[in-house]
Design a binder for these strands. Structure first.
Lengths: 354, 354
DNA sequence: TTGTAAGCGTTATCAG
DNA sequence: CTGATAACGCTTACAA
């Protein structure tokens, strides 16, 4: 590996001049610049990032901490981060699947000194509060944070609104007994979706019923389980809202295995709008979450603070969700999008079936 | 940020001693070690990675270059990489979605000096040859590389065997007219799967027919298109093999929209075994690809070479695939796994339906 | 067992 | 415009 010294010697200039060329300094004549460039490329010289960041105290990298990398949602978030970071010429250091707070904090320390900012998904209260100290001395953007986040910069999804819109939509077809397959207990998305579900019910004069809320953990398998649990009730619900699409898929699969038709016998709604949802049979009515934008916005939020490495100014941005009408909810709207049934509730809006 | 000097001063020792403590050197008394540890943690000291790697010439990071981050396959690969890297206390620097060779090479240079090894997915010939030079001076493992790779270390998927096994399986039900929805032209996985398809046909005395091979690009939409193209033939094929599951999903969706039943009217097979395949209606017969293992193996291969930064010794590892029997192929095996129809062909094996 | 000091490859601050 | 030279925070002979 050629160093700046090699280039300087070979080009007959000082290392300072070579450095200036690579830092786009105007303090260098066009001739020298050109000459240095040629020598450098002949020697295959590339500035050493470590040395650079040692003196500038900037790494040009952002860290990304995720609870897990599993499934389409996370991969879309990373994609948004990756592309936005690249546009700003930043590198992305990822670390995922942190089982507990300890390994999470270990990951944070190992990144320290190597990054100029951190994007952390902290979907439960424990994680959020563990990261709290760090958010006070370093640029951090929290994705989908738990409730302990007043003084941090956060970016979340309109979970409540999405769930609310979904339930109201189901009700618009006359469904009165709407069940829910919940997400993991500590998970903030799951909690907010549940809250949206309950509020929608109450707003229409129905008291949420515990036996209609069955547990789940965001996996297909738990959606399948959840359906089976619900079918054991003496009175079958006429609609089920799953807290994410993966569970909705398991749910539909279980209903089919039990000889029930969706949506004729039972309507189903999901959450996330993963890519394959529209190809399911029946196509899944769901709430679209723009994970790509979530990642992209996070980068855009953090970028201005990477220079000073001062904490990101506390503020809370919400990425809207969209109700996507397809056939699993029994919606006739899926065929006639102009129907009067439409009801908007910001920031969750409805869209044509994709 | 506290530096090693702060700790040394505060603890009343030299910076060398502090350094030794952090490098697990035996040349330091237990008392001093303990004392330094305490002072360090009080000052919230964390060694600066840049300074460290400047002198040691090791970054403890590996770079990951992917063509795109889209979909379950890539996210699983990254997951495998991430976990294996963490176990070895390595960081992971990702960069994906490189439209062309130029942006790819730009990503490679921007990583130089920041990584001790590179895992690059180079699913087409252009990418593979662009990376070629680099593989001769640096530890690189190529994932699913194109044909120009004799002297590199590579890790690939048993695409050919998987496709071969799938086609032979379909034939075992008497299908004679088996169509294929292909993947992108330049993509090596797509090419190998196509080759496996054709070879299986020829091995059973059938000459592959161009009109039965329709183009696709690995997206659901192209699977849908592909089905429509095939249905325009005067003689409908009795089975279709899609080069990946996403296309198979689009395919099934199109067949259903055309009033055809799967597998009764037409059998369908996919490739990848993405998580939701078993929840489709009908559950999809496919070829399982262990993307997680692919990522994990790549890290394990490269790790021994990160110390010296010498090129990885050329060798070619193949991750096996498994035929997964479900209902979309009309397999009665899916119910009776012990049937005589089973036929094994290493390294692709069959498994019970999940 | 501990300390001293010479780098690692850059950038930044001066002088010229 | 260009060149010396002192940092940056750390590891590692070598000395003590």
């Amino acid at each position: 590996m050629a160093t700046i010294r090699d280039v300087a010697r070979e080009a007959g200039v000082s290392i300072a001049t070579v450095s200036r060329v690579y830092n786009e300094s105007p303090l260098v004549s066009d001739d020298t610049r050109e000459h240095v460039r040629q020598v450098a490329s002949r020697l295959d010289y590339i500035p050493n990032g470590a040395a650079r960041s040692l003196i500038t105290n900037r790494t040009h990298a952002i860290g990304v901490l995720l609870p897990d990398l599993y499934g389409e949602f996370f991969s879309e978030v990373i994609r948004g981060i990756d592309l936005a970071a690249r546009r700003a010429r930043f590198q992305v250091l990822v670390s995922s699947s942190h089982a507990d707070t300890d390994t999470l904090m270990a990951a944070v320390s190992s990144m320290r000194g190597r990054i100029d900012g951190l994007i952390a998904m902290a979907p439960d209260e424990k994680t959020t509060s563990a990261l709290r100290d760090f958010t006070r001395k370093f640029p951090v953007v929290l994705l989908n944070p738990g409730p302990v986040q007043a003084e941090c910069a956060t970016l979340s999804i309109a979970n409540f609104d999405g769930a609310y819109a979904m339930v109201r939509h189901l009700q618009s077809f006359g469904h009165r007994s709407i069940a829910m397959v919940k997400g993991p207990d500590g998970n903030i998305d799951a909690q907010e979706r549940l809250r949206g579900y309950r509020t929608a019910l109450r707003d229409s004069g129905i008291e949420p019923e515990p036996s209609l809320e069955v547990p789940g953990d965001f996996t297909e398998a738990s959606g399948y389980e959840g359906a089976m649990t619900l079918l054991q009730r003496q009175l079958r619900p006429t609609a089920v809202f799953a807290a994410n699409d993966y569970m909705a898929i398991g749910l539909v699969s279980a209903l089919r295995d039990s000889g029930l038709r969706v949506p004729d016998d039972i309507a189903v709604g999901g959450f996330d709008d993963i890519a394959i949802s529209k190809y399911l049979s029946p196509p899944l009515t769901t709430v679209r979450v723009d994970a790509y934008t979530l990642g992209e916005r996070a980068v855009l939020q953090i970028l201005p603070f990477t220079r000073t490495r001062k904490p990101v100014i506390a503020h809370h941005e919400v990425v809207p969700t969209q109700l996507v009408l397809r056939r699993s909810c029994g919606s006739t709207l899926a065929m006639a999008p102009d129907s009067l049934h439409r009801q908007r509730r910001r920031p969750t809006s409805e869209v044509e079936p994709g």
